[in-house]
């Protein structure tokens, strides 16, 4: 599988934050949630969490699933 379509698979949230003061490159995204995910396949990844509502935000220990890669950045969401 090439890197652009790589699926990092499911994982568990190791830690997270919601960024309010964004850097220049991400001003339009703020506020956004960032997390370090412990991957089921091993290792950790810094990922973005797709969350429109407070309820979709994740916390330490939550299971999350891979959604897609956007410009090399893995996007995850809370597993159902």
């Amino acid at each position: 599988m090439d890197e652009a379509n790589r699926n990092f698979g499911p994982g568990v949230v190791y830690t997270e934050t919601v960024v309010h003061a964004a850097p220049e490159a991400f001003l339009r995204d703020a506020p956004y949630q960032l997390a370090i995910v412990e991957l089921q396949g091993g290792g950790r990844r810094t990922v973005r969490i797709l969350a429109q509502t407070e309820g979709e935000r994740v916390h330490i220990g939550d299971r999350v699933e891979f959604v897609e890669l956007r410009e090399g950045v893995p996007f995850y969401r809370k597993a159902p």
Binding site: Y14, T15, E16, T17, L34, T46, G72, V73
Partner: peptide, 24 residues
């Protein structure tokens, strides 16, 4: 850059994630 900054991490965000883990 590749591992965390491209995903939208700032220094406050990195230390916020450290704080969350320390609290946990």
């Amino acid at each position: 850059l590749a591992g965390e900054i491209r995903a939208g991490a700032t220094f406050p965000a990195l230390f916020a994630m450290i704080a969350r883990r320390h609290m946990h």
